[in-house]
Amino acid sequence: MGGTKALAPWNGTTLIAAVIDRMAAQASAMALNARPDQAQDLARFGLPVLVDDEDLADLGPLSGVRTALAWAQARGNDHVVTAPCDMPDLPKDMVARLMAADAADIAYFATMRDHPLCARWSVSLLPGLEAALAGADGGLAVMRFVERQTVIKLPTEDDAAFANINSL
């Protein structure tokens, strides 16, 4: 898409504003994750902006998960729920379903394909994720990390809720 994907127009607003609106009623606290060069663009939404470590920012979405886990840990939380900025139609009960899932390092949704970034992550993963990112050369594939953890997949038939917007 070019530029900051989160700010791409979507139904009269932006992708990130649509996700914020969808998640606001579900979460007790919210924050946005950003690469260092995008943080200022996201500050206008009035939520804390968690900036990825400069050394990890180019390692893919798991650098953002790492940043969110560190934030959750500092707040005394056991888990964090993540949602990508390019899925504006996520289920209105996403957080409740993730939090109700059985104990696991990661709980995420699976439709016809897996959606590991629509997930509940245990803060206990932080040291292992940091080590994996430190050893990543050029990035760390999400599924490569996820497959090494204790995982619960939450089946759902609602493929449309997890539609990833990659072009407008």
Rank of each mutant, 00 (worst) to 15 (best):
A39C: 05
R120G: 03
M30Y: 07
S167R: 13
G138A: 01
L90Y: 11
T67P: 05
L129R: 05
I106V: 13
M23S: 04
A131P: 04
A163C: 07
P91H: 12
T4I: 02
A100C: 07
L129E: 05
S124K: 09
G46F: 05
I152S: 01
L15R: 13
E147Y: 14
I20W: 02
D21W: 14
D105P: 00
I20P: 01
T111L: 11
G60C: 07
L7C: 00
R120L: 08
Q73V: 11
S122F: 14
V81H: 03
T82C: 15
V51R: 02
Q38T: 09
T111W: 14
A83R: 09
A18R: 08
E130Q: 05
N166V: 12
L42W: 08
L59N: 10
A161H: 06
H79K: 10
F45A: 00
L15W: 03
D102M: 11
A6Q: 03
A31D: 03
F109Q: 06
L133F: 00
A131Q: 08
W10D: 04
E157C: 13
A31M: 04
P155L: 00
I152L: 02
D55K: 14
M1W: 06
S122T: 04
T111Q: 11
L50Y: 06
L133P: 06
N77H: 11
V81S: 01
A6T: 04
G135S: 07
A8D: 00
P91T: 12
L42G: 03
L117C: 14
N33L: 14
Y108W: 13
D55Q: 15
D78T: 15
P61H: 09
D41T: 06
E157G: 02
G46S: 09
Q26L: 01
V51I: 02
G12H: 07
D105C: 02
A96Q: 10
V142G: 03
D105I: 00
Q149D: 04
Q38S: 07
P61R: 12
